[in-house]
């Protein structure tokens, strides 16, 4: 009986366990759909000087000016030409709106908590990347890397702070 009630609650929460997945390089990544605001086609980007390479610049989202990040560059992959499959996923993380440039949108997947495993600890070498990948999920025959957008953003701020500190020290 109790389980039935629980199921109902789960059903009502349509966003629960749903992930927006996209492909970058060979890997598939997923972001919890609750963060995703919308997906828009590639737009003209206004570059901003003196920012990190992966911050591509600003776009005009119906009058709202938001920064966009190239996920490939963010993950330290070689940048690739934008095509007509290139999309911008607009995410809202703690009142910050950011656009993520991704190569290809895949689909919305339902991933239950049980299928998510924490990323294997690879020693300290790969620490950098694992900070925003909080779990791996197997759906079908692919493994998806689940991203924690909050960390993605927070990371940013931390790095900026570190940079400022470095600059001051030097």
């Amino acid at each position: 009986m109790a389980e039935e009630v629980k199921d109902e609650v789960m059903e009502e929460d349509a966003q629960k366990g749903k992930f927006m997945t996209f492909q970058t390089g060979k890997e598939y990544f997923g972001i919890s759909i609750s963060y995703v605001n919308e997906i828009i086609a590639m737009q003209p980007i206004t570059a901003i000087p003196e920012v990190d390479e992966y911050v591509k610049g600003l776009i005009n989202l119906r009058g709202k000016i938001i920064p966009v990040i190239d996920v490939r560059v963010r993950f330290k992959m070689e940048p690739k030409e934008y095509t007509d499959r290139t999309c911008i996923i607009v995410i809202d993380v703690k009142s910050t709106t950011v656009g993520l440039i991704v190569e290809k949108i895949a689909e919305v997947d339902t991933i239950v908590d049980d299928d998510i495993v924490p990323p294997p600890a690879l020693g300290h070498k790969d620490k950098e990347r694992n900070k925003y990948v909080y779990g791996l999920a197997r759906t079908g025959d692919t493994v998806k890397l689940l991203l924690d957008p909050e960390k993605l953003i927070k990371q940013e701020v931390l790095e900026v702070l570190e940079e400022i500190q470095e600059k001051e020290e030097s």
């Binding site: 000087p49 920012v51 920064p67 910050t96 709106t97």
Partner: peptide
């Protein structure tokens, strides 16, 4: 400029 982007001189 969105606060996400650090201040550019």
């Amino acid at each position: 400029i969105p606060s996400y982007i650090k201040k550019v001189k």
